[in-house]
């Protein structure tokens, strides 16, 4: 009886250990996927920041060019004699 009980305890311990390893494997998979998700978020952040910075730069350049064009057009409209043929 005692020998059979010892075998049963060993089997239960083995099952528990296997379940524990399965749980650990599951947790490791989840953590790995979370890390991948985190890496993706970091990469997305950097990409989005880069795109936003380039967009901001383009908008700044465009704003300056538009201001220059506006000044030129205002000068041209303020001096209509430039367009009148003598």
């Amino acid at each position: 009886m005692a020998r059979a009980g010892g075998i049963t305890n060993a089997v239960n311990v083995g099952i528990a250990v296997q379940a524990d390893w399965e749980n650990r494997e599951f947790i490791s998979h989840v953590s790995l996927n979370v890390r991948r998700l985190f890496d993706f978020l970091v990469q997305f952040e950097s990409t989005t920041k880069n795109k936003l910075s380039s967009l901001n730069e383009k908008l700044d350049t465009l704003e300056r060019r538009l201001e220059m064009l506006e000044v030129q057009v205002s000068n041209a409209t303020s001096n209509p004699a430039l367009f009148t043929s003598t």
Partner: peptide, 16 residues
């Protein structure tokens, strides 16, 4: 977000 950024970049390029 990417689509929105691409749209804005394309719009800025058209404006340029």
């Amino acid at each position: 977000v990417n689509d929105l950024l691409d749209e804005n970049i394309a719009e800025v390029s058209g404006t340029e």
